[in-house]
Structures are given as structure tokens and as C-alpha cells.
Amino acid sequence: MTDTTATEAAPAPRHAAAVELLSEVLGDAVLAHHSEGGELWVRVHHEAWQPAGYALRDELGCRWFDFLSAIDWLPSPFGRDMDAEQDWPTTGPPARDTAIEHGVTGGETRLQIFARAAAVEDHPGGGNLSVILKADLPNENPAVQTWIPVYAGANWHEREAWEMFGIAFVGHPDLRHIYLPGEFEGHPLRKDFPLLARRVKPWPGIVDVEDMPDPAEEAQS
């Protein structure tokens, strides 16, 4: 069982210390941070991506690499492909809005790369320290330095991000398709890549077979 009598550090001060340490090492490159539900988000400048990785590993002790991926913040021009009428029993179909709205720690551009690492070897109680690092990528030619020298496991994740989002990783020795066939064109996880199956055969809606139960009846039973 966990030795809870040891430093029962509440997440918030630990996170504050971590952000302070990162700011010390990276200077102005730390743009924003956010702490919620035991997780710490830090947004750094994309040119400081690799130094931030080193700082994460060496200064904060987050030696365990979790994952690396990206988010395309552009709302899909195709909507959610579920615009059958019965899906919106009360509100009617929503207005399709195309303004980019970023999540926690904000953002400036459309593509955002994010990766997570954790310090798994110390057991402070109340969860290991883990940091989700984010960086905005330029809209034109999104590219960032590779993390392979920092975390060897980033190799495949970067190949995946390159394939799915078209993000180039400078210094990656082997940037090629990992899931899709070699001649595949396009970057499927970008929001402007249509899900063709849904174009060809529209989704029947969130109500697949039967009508949604009446909330009043539900409450009675």
C-alpha cells in the first residue's frame, strides 16, 4: 500500500513549484499553465519544444514518456456529421461556427502539439507528478524539433503525428508512414479531412434504433 504518511503534497503547490522551475530554465518560452484534476498543463513556445522536453526529464524528473500527439483546433467544416433532425429534439441544429476556440492554457494557432511525461518512480502520495506540455505550431509548415534524443519512445508517436496531422519533426531520422499505406495522401486527423464513410452514407443520428426515452417516464420507473 502507498505510504501516505510521507510528504502528502497537495497537487497545487507541487504544480506551482514545477511551473516555477520550468520558467527558470526556459525563461519567456513558458507561455501559460493550468492545473486541474491532478494534471498540470504547460504551454511553451514551439521553438523551445526540445529544451522543454529536456527540462521536463532532467529538472522535473519526469523520466517516463507517456504520449505525444496533436490537436487540430479548427472546428470541422463538416460539422459533427450527425445532423439528423431527431438529434436535436429541443435546440434544433446548431449554428456551424468556425471560430477557433482553444482549450486549457489557450493557444494562438490552429495546430497544437501536446505530450505528457510523468515522474513515476517517486511516490509522494496523491499521484505522481505529471506534466502535459503543449506548443502552438505555425500555421504554415508546422514543424518542431524532434524529441527522440529526450525520450526514445517519441519516435513512433512523432511518426504518427506527422502522418495524421502533417507536423514535421526536425531531426527525426525516419519520418514515414506508420499506420497508413505509403502512398496515402492527406492528414486524416486534421479537421478538414472529411470522414468519407459519413459523406457516402450519413449517420442515422444519435438515436440508432428506438426513440429516446421520455425523461418523465424514466423518473417514474
Binding site: R63, W64, F65, F67, V120, E121, V150, Y151, A152, G153
Partner: peptide
């Protein structure tokens, strides 16, 4: 262990 950590083995 170092290799396991840096490759993200779990």
C-alpha cells in the same frame, strides 16, 4: 529501467 522509462513502457 532507463530504457523502459524513455520508451514509455508501462
Amino acid at each position: 529501467p532507463e530504457i523502459a522509462l524513455s520508451f514509455g513502457l508501462s
